[in-house]
């Protein structure tokens, strides 16, 4: 799982440097429990294959999410919340795609992305699976957490 997480971290770095225009600073890989309290916004995507199932989430404060999307679009704030969520979904889609290509032997397929948001909510992820987290510092924009779990046989 450690190795899988490293690949997701690489995928995140590649995505941010080529498409958001900044170089994140990745923290250490940490273990987390299955109940996650995300930041205000999270973007999620699932990956599944014949012998593997998992998902990844990127989560940040709303104001950080807005700035990330500005970097992604290269222009002022997305016209609407809808655009904001579309962009975040696309970013996690790209991270998922880049990660799955690195895990090509697992023959994973991506789900459609989704975006969740609010205050004081939680994600209850599958129990009995190692769940990994990495905190990224996005230059002077703020922080982002990457959470990944993958069950494979």
């Amino acid at each position: 799982m450690e190795q899988i997480m490293k690949l997701f971290v690489e995928a995140t770095m590649e995505t941010f440097t080529t498409m958001v225009g900044l170089t994140p600073d990745a923290g250490e890989i940490e273990d987390v429990g299955h109940i996650i309290t995300p930041s205000e916004i999270c973007a999620n995507i699932s990956l599944s294959g014949d012998n593997a199932q998992g998902a990844t989430t990127i989560t940040f404060a709303r104001e950080v999410a807005i700035k990330v999307v500005e970097g992604f679009m290269g222009e002022g704030m997305a016209d609407s919340d809808e655009d904001l969520y579309d962009a975040l979904g696309e970013i996690v889609n790209i991270i998922g795609g880049a990660a799955k290509a690195k895990l090509s032997e697992m023959q994973l397929k991506l789900s459609l992305p989704s975006v969740t948001g609010g205050n004081n909510y939680f994600l209850s992820l599958p129990k009995d699976l190692p769940i990994k987290k990495v905190k990224f510092t996005l230059e002077d924009l703020g922080e982002m957490n990457l959470i990944v779990y993958m069950k494979h046989t």
């Binding site: 498409m19 795609g97 290509a101 090509s104």
Partner: peptide
């Protein structure tokens, strides 16, 4: 985002002229 080699080859064989994988 479908950037695995076999998908690229599959698309090219189906007639795609070029392939750009995300992120770009």
């Amino acid at each position: 985002t479908e950037s695995e080699r076999e998908n690229m080859v599959k698309a090219i064989q189906a007639g795609a002229k070029n392939y750009l994988s995300k992120p770009f």
